[in-house]
């Protein structure tokens, strides 16, 4: 599903953030990407969504070589992903309902589909009664669950979660992780970047550890966060 071949990313003039990273993630895997801040986790994620281009090396996602994607096809390519961020990245001028609906609108869903699917997913993440609220009117945990609902509404093949629990307390963090595991059960490949030791150890799946732009450890099963 995802393949990195000798990927190098240098921010000008000579700040090496990813140094010769090679890894493969199979369809349906749940991967925790761990490491200290600045290890290169976020850069790796942003390379995947084609927000950044690698300085050298190859990235292949779902059989597509990212080098060969035309600019105008990037929006379509991004619809393969659902993305969740530490700062939620919700549209502040849109209600909870509209935030989710927007993700459907961009993939040309009909109004009927939107009216049917959005309430459904909102109730899955426990926000059925918050549909008309704006993001500022939701708590941190609610905002992140809304972001997950938005990420999942178009049934993406890959879910990228970049420090999704970074701004949340313990209880809310576990809610988010439970949702991610559930999503993974339905067959979506999940990549979770985090530096939260407890969470990684609870999940106990594949753990890739990064440090200073390099992959220093790749535990395929029952991985733990060790630095």
């Amino acid at each position: 599903m995802i393949e990195f071949k000798n990927v190098k990313k240098i921010y000008e003039p000579n700040d090496i953030v990813l140094d010769d990273v090679s890894l493969t993630i199979k369809k349906g895997e749940f991967v925790s990407l761990v490491g200290l801040s600045g290890a290169g986790k976020s850069t790796l994620m942003r390379l995947l969504t084609h927000e950044l281009r690698p300085t050298s090396g190859k990235i292949i996602v779902d059989g597509l070589d990212l080098d060969e994607i035309h600019d105008k096809d990037v929006p379509y390519f991004r619809r393969k992903f659902g993305t969740i961020y530490q700062d939620f990245k919700l549209l502040s001028h849109k209600t909870a309902f509209e935030n989710v609906a927007f993700a459907m609108e961009v993939s040309d869903a009909t109004p009927e589909e939107i009216a049917r699917d959005v309430p459904q997913i909102l109730s899955i993440v426990g926000l059925a009664d918050k549909a008309p609220n704006f993001p500022q009117q939701l708590s941190g945990g609610e905002q992140q669950r809304l972001a997950i609902a938005r990420a999942m509404i178009h049934r993406p093949k890959i879910l990228l979660a970049d420090e999704p629990t970074g701004n949340l307390d313990l209880v809310n963090s576990y809610d988010v992780v439970k949702l991610l595991l559930k999503i993974n059960e339905f067959g979506t490949t999940v990549v979770l970047a985090t530096h939260d030791t407890n969470i990684v150890n609870t999940i106990g799946r594949r753990v890739i550890t990064m440090d200073k732009g390099k992959v220093i450890r790749d535990q395929l099963e029952a991985g733990r966060y060790i630095i």
Binding site: P75, R78, R79, T83, L91, F102, V106, R150
Partner: peptide
Amino acid sequence: NQKQEIEIMRLVGASNWH
């Protein structure tokens, strides 16, 4: 002012016309 909103829309996979 809405730079960030536009950025988010792009990440969700919105085409330029959207």
